[in-house]
Design a protein around this nucleic acid. Structure first.
Lengths: 191, 191
DNA sequence: GTCTATATGCTGATAGAC
DNA sequence: GTCTATCAGCATATAGAC
């Protein structure tokens, strides 16, 4: 986002960095490996990015811009507040689980010493306002804590990347449906 | 768990390791820092543990044994399947959020190259059977997927450590109540 | 824009005295 | 059981040629 340069190589570099950060963790991933995976030498990275930390921030910027776009688009033209929430959840889970390494890299805990950590959290909060807004228009029992509800739903979704596997279990879409329906309709048949 | 040695020093070392792993991440945490925080020299660690990886596994063993004990104890004598589930969730969240660094260290993504990774996942799965059992005895609509329900609830709980802060927001207990009630009673007042 | 070469420092781990 | 001393390797980042 800062230097004027061939967009292709930059993109390639970001993709490689995301893959390494996800696979090995930020601290364990080395600039050598990232460079190798992007088809260049270590020193060349520094023409495109100032530091390893800057690379992490850029990965977050790219990932969150993309998922924000996808989630926003998913609710467009959908009627009914619950259906809109479900569509957003489907988009969120699809990006997270089947949208490539970019989003999985972003779900890892952000290292405590990274320069630009605040920016990363700002981007994340900004994205989550989509869900704040979708939940704000739901008709809920008056005692409902909407903040807790949002965090509960996002937690359930974001945790899926620790257990979900492509070839077994429910699709991202059916997971989204189940999550939202469990909250919407209630599970206690005795009540 | 392997060598006969002064239990105190070992415990001290585990505590220091857990704190460092949580604060800095496993890869970024150094044996030097851990040693310093435990009041000894780097080389002395290797009398108690074979490697940094072994230290991580031991931290998981300790943490999961403790949380398992706490959660099991919390449901004892509690009547009613939903109340039992809520008690277990309260215990789980209390350990995770206010039980010290041990449990937060365990919630971090497990590095991909650690020796003993399988053991760590085995311990985690073993612990989660407590929730499998509690959910198995709930009376639910026949179409309910209990596996997804468990993963949804655990996800919501385990994600709290990314946003929860001691001085603001709901207590672990009231969070547990809200999570379980949201699932139990349903939120759509139109239905 | 990408390269080779390298500076500088920190890493996990080991040897062996006490 | 804990120490001092040290090894060999890899880390991020920079300098400067092309």
């Amino acid at each position: 986002m800062s230097k004027p340069t061939s967009a292709n190589r930059r993109e390639q570099l970001l993709e490689a960095a995301a893959a390494c950060f996800y696979r090995e963790g930020f601290e364990a991933a080395s600039m050598r490996t990232i460079a190798e995976e992007a088809g260049m030498r270590t020193a060349s990275i520094y023409y495109h990015f100032d530091s390893k930390d800057a690379l992490l921030v850029a990965v977050h910027e790219t990932a969150l811009a993309r998922i924000r776009k996808a989630t926003s688009a998913a609710v467009e033209g959908v009627a009914g507040p619950w259906q809109r929430l479900e569509s957003a959840c489907t988009a969120h889970l699809e990006m997270l689980l089947t949208g490539g390494t970019f989003f999985k890299a972003v779900m890892r805990q952000v290292p405590s010493k990274v320069e630009g950590r605040d920016m990363i959290f700002k981007l994340r909060d900004e994205y989550e306002t989509i869900f704040t807004d979708l939940i704000a228009v739901l008709e809920l029992p008056s005692a409902t804590d909407r903040d807790t509800l949002r965090l509960m739903l996002l937690g359930a979704m974001n945790w899926t990347f620790t257990w979900w596997r492509p070839r077994s279990g429910p699709s991202p879409g059916s997971l989204a449906t189940t999550f939202v329906n469990n909250l919407r309709t209630g599970l206690d048949i005795a009540s």
